[in-house]
Amino acid sequence: MNAFRLAGDMTHLISVLVLLLKIHTIKSCAGISLKTQELYALVFATRYLDIFTDFISLYNTVMKLIFLGSSFSIVWYMRRHKLVQRSYDKDHDTFRHQLLVLPCLILALLIHEQFTFKEVMWTFSIYLEAVAILPQLVLLQRTRNIDNLTGQYVFFLGAYRSLYILNWIYRYFTEPHYVHWITWISGLVQTLLYADFFYYYISSWKNNVKLTLPA
């Protein structure tokens, strides 16, 4: 495993931990989109169908379990935990996430590398992950106050995607037959979605002012 890939996984892990810290410790999910969290739970559930059938490494299995467990517990917290539930900004989190799921499913049925159930589900998860952040970005734009933990959560998620791109470039030049257009294009689309947020996040950090996004 190369350094970009490891750093990507670690920033992904940090983003999840930041979110869990906010929810579990402060008992608040203010500014967090339940729609995005539900989409991520669906992404991991459909991508890791191989978790008990194909063993890759202990690292791989443990990380899969962490991402599955954390995404479903975040959804549980936001839907079922009394205190956390109360801080959920339901009125602003109105993105119709079904509008993302269906096109991704159709696209996965049309464009995939192998027409098997597992492979189509895996491809669907790749497409869905690319756009799953959209409800969260829309919610951020509608919320005038973005607290530090929410900003850091989105920042680390974006960092994870950027590092994965460096990982693909590295693997392309170091491994034979490493060509994965579906993953690359989806990953690139996903990273570009963060570009705007990154711009405002970094400039607020540089100028030492609170993060706000333009309407």
């Binding site: 890939r5 996984d9 992904h12 191989d50 194909d54 890759i56 490494s57 791989n60 990380m63 899969k64 991402f67 590398e113 192998q114 492979e119 895996w122 994965y164 990982n167 693997r171 491994e175 037959h177 490493y178 060509v179 994965h180 993953t183």
Partner: peptide, 10 residues
């Protein structure tokens, strides 16, 4: 073979 390599990613 090529398909499998990307499956070690998360």
């Amino acid at each position: 073979l090529a398909l499998e390599s990307v499956k070690d990613e998360l």
